[in-house]
Design a protein around this nucleic acid. Structure first.
Lengths: 126, 126
DNA sequence: AATGCTAAGTATGATTTTCGAACTTATCTC
DNA sequence: GAGATAAGTTCGAAAATCATACTTAGCATT
């Protein structure tokens, strides 16, 4: 009961909200996705909220809570590791500062160091 | 086939080398630990090397490779999250700079920012 | 207001993984 | 050698995953 959790959170982080989209992206069985989503909602990492796209009917959607969003640092760190060690240094995603456009990284720094908040970043899938 | 991986790596990061110590710390069944260790060794994250403590017999020990050690950023990020959200903000471990004694954190920063290397840190289990 | 479409979620039985407990093996100590 | 200890294997029961089929609910069209 664990293998899928991070992948689902990553989907949510990418902005994928819908059941069937998550399912297809990561190839998880429906029944398992249902139970994982319930678990994540119960633990306050995802929130189930109805949403509506212009001209389509309203559907349930799953979005990260504040608590869930803060896991993104972990996900970025893991991606950074994967880029270096599993993919010959070629990143799958680029994280940059929205204003300055400078690339960002996850790092171990002095506690006082300024950090970039999640609200200030852009993701580009490569 | 996944639940235990991070916990085993964390053990290795703490410096726990021995089969039975890992097993007791995280309560993993022997057979599962065996297979997970094999897997981690096969993927170059752990290395199985004989080691000897003064006055005791030599035993097999599992230690992180360079590749494995680099996962520590992910683990720190996850710990930082857990401290904040699962444990009322009380950290289970403190990471500090060996020289300056300043506390450290994992953060999203500009790619050029100086970071503290793993060789320069002290861990204190609280 | 019935029909059909679509996406969310449930049901089910086979397969795979985990668990726990007992057993085997190898090495060190005496 | 005899005993002790820690690493690792075996094996049957329990739990989670998987693939596939089925149900449900809302809306759009007729």
């Amino acid at each position: 009961m664990e293998k899928w959790t991070m992948l689902i959170i990553r989907e949510a982080f990418y902005g994928v909200k819908r059941f069937d989209d998550i399912r297809e992206d990561i190839s998880i069985p429906r029944s398992v996705l249902t139970s994982r989503l319930k678990h994540l909602v119960a633990h306050g990492i995802l929130e189930r909220k109805q949403y509506q796209v212009e001209g389509a009917r309203s559907r349930p959607g799953y979005v990260l809570t504040a608590k869930g969003r803060e896991l993104s640092l972990t996900i970025f760190a893991l991606m950074q590791w994967g880029d270096k060690h599993l993919k010959d240094g070629k990143p799958a995603i680029a994280i940059s500062h929205r204003e300055s456009k400078n690339p960002l990284k996850v790092a171990l720094v002095e506690a006082g160091t300024d950090e970039v908040s999640l609200a200030e970043i852009d993701l580009k899938i490569l």
